[in-house]
Amino acid sequence: MERDGVVNIGRGAVKKADVELAVHAEGLVRKFGENAAVDGVDLIVRRGEIYGFLGPNGAGKTTTIRMLATLLPPSSGTAEIFGHDIARDADEVRSRVSLTGQFASVDEDLTGHENLVLIARLLGHSRKESKARSAELLAAFGLSDAASRQVKKYSGGMRRRLDIAASIVVTPELLFLDEPTTGLDPRSRNQVWDIIRTLASEGTTVLLTTQYLDEADQLADRIAVIDNGKVIAEGTPGELKASVGAGALHVRLADPETRPEAERILSNSLGAPMHLESDPAALSARVSDPERVSRALAELSRSGVAVTDFALGQPSLDEVFLALTGRPADDNENNENPGGKEEEVA
């Protein structure tokens, strides 16, 4: 499974003839001076899927996307978008992709309507078509009321929606979304997720970057985990989780004083080291056999250690990252849901 340091947990190598590939990158490198922001990225995205590019700040996600969108020439390596080389056929690539950048890629001085008309005109629509298209998109994204307001007066969520609307003035075959929900409130984030799912169901391939682990889990068909400019793991969310272990047990004690004792009992009966959480009453462990969990918990109650809460669930992607890199994802204070999706078994 281990190949060139990449944990390949996917369905095995994809043969180019099998499926039509939206993105096929080999050995992409981009250096800024001495520092390689992207250090040999191989990437295969199939037509029609939502592909998640997951990593902490500075991992090389944006640089990779900018190379694929022809904004930045790679220092070495090649990439094809629907079979068109990003260096040689840049124009062909540009007429198939759209980019929604990390920072609002709309003009803040203009109104929402003017922004969309501008893009429509630049894509070749007539003045009349451009206005109609803008109105149609503003309505679809719930922005009709704000059509004649300057974008600088928009909320973060509205701006993001306008940004995505600007990316689909002509429906692209491949849409790059660079951190589409960073800084959004949960409601706006859900709206953006709905938009992304709808786009994908209508046939647009989506390559999104995120540092929110649950976002990749929620949206992506396949995920590449990127760290220090390298893809360190690739596969479906389920495959990634499975590669780390069957699941995780989280226990919360009534009395933090009892934690050392609980740690001893649990690690003995689980046969695995316990992880002490920052919460002084909480501890967790990766487990392979659910049977042992019930025995361990029974052992705990026999010893008189009171438990207020326990949960057994699939490991979160945060834990996946920890397992893959040996350190937690940077900036993980941004992860709104570090516990991932756990099912209460109590």
Partner: peptide
């Protein structure tokens, strides 16, 4: 804000040439 109307989004996507 108005809600995202999925149907109008779908039609906006399909009407784009």
């Amino acid at each position: 804000t108005q809600n995202i109307a999925e149907e109008s989004l779908r039609s906006a996507l399909s009407s784009s040439e």
